[in-house]
């Protein structure tokens, strides 16, 4: 397959020469996904911890919904945000559709349930272990929360990385709410889909390699954090 060989070589030279188009797409992808993960963590960590610590009517339903939303198909998340932000939608007046902000919102919707649900698991287990001691120290749930989040920090870092993995790898949501506009809302995944269908395999493959490297980096980091935590904290 000489043509593919050429595409692979072309892809590598695009990466190594820091091609501005490729670089622009990678930068936007990182901006969107990192912002989504940041917002998702700021909401998801306290939300997950609160769900672990407090028992209230409807808690079971909330947890079930959260777990179900972990498997939310990205296209459905995209559609929901599309309906919300489209001209006729409730938030249409903000004019956010087909902007990076819309993409951040859509990816946050994908990432938030993962972070909140996994945080609930970790904090719940830790609370189970700490509860008597903290109760003995007369520390209530509200005062316990920051300490629990801190003590679960290594587990929670891998949770956040899992969220980042999901955000950076999805196509459906950003495609629907972003529109894959060249130079504005084109990210790695949507660009790969488009360039492949156009036959521009070099750029598609180049982006694919970067994405693959990113995913490998995220998983490697998660592994290293987990191992270090196990060794250090016992």
């Amino acid at each position: 397959m000489p043509e593919n060989d050429n595409a692979f070589q072309a892809a590598l030279s695009l990466i190594l020469s820091l091609d501005p188009v490729l670089l622009g797409i990678v930068t936007l992808s990182l901006q969107v996904s990192l912002s989504a993960v940041l917002v998702g963590a700021l909401i998801g960590l306290p939300l997950g911890a609160a769900l672990a610590l407090w028992h209230f009517p409807g808690r079971g339903l909330a947890v079930t919904l959260l777990n179900a939303f972990m498997g939310l198909p990205p296209v459905v998340a995209g559609l929901m945000i599309y309906l919300l932000l489209s001209r006729a939608g409730p938030l249409g007046s903000l004019g956010l559709l087909f902007t990076p902000t819309a993409m951040i919102i859509a990816q946050t919707l994908l990432v938030l349930p993962i972070i909140a649900a996994l945080t609930r698991d970790h904090i719940g287990a830790l609370w189970e272990e700490y509860r008597e001691q903290l109760h003995s120290l007369r520390i209530g749930r509200v005062r316990a929360m920051p300490g629990l989040l801190w003590d679960a920090r290594f587990a929670l870092m891998t949770v956040i990385l899992a969220g980042f993995g999901r955000a950076s790898a999805e196509v459906g949501a950003v495609l629907i709410v972003g529109g894959n506009i060249d130079g504005v809302t084109r990210v790695m995944t949507t660009a790969i889909a488009l360039e492949t269908s156009k036959g521009n395999l070099a750029l598609a493959l180049g982006l694919g390699l970067v994405l693959l490297g990113l995913v490998a980096l995220v998983n490697g980091t998660a592994y290293v954090i987990g191992e270090r935590a196990r060794r250090r904290l016992g």
Binding site: E132, Q133, I139, R143, G147, A152, L233
Partner: peptide, 27 residues
């Protein structure tokens, strides 16, 4: 002011020093 020491001590996932400063913060 009461305190309790358990059969299996609950150690916070921190340094020995931080386990004490946490208790001081609690007080």
């Amino acid at each position: 002011l009461q305190a309790m020491v358990f059969q299996h001590p609950v150690m916070l996932r921190r340094t020995a020093l931080a386990n004490l400063t946490y208790a001081l913060a609690a007080r």
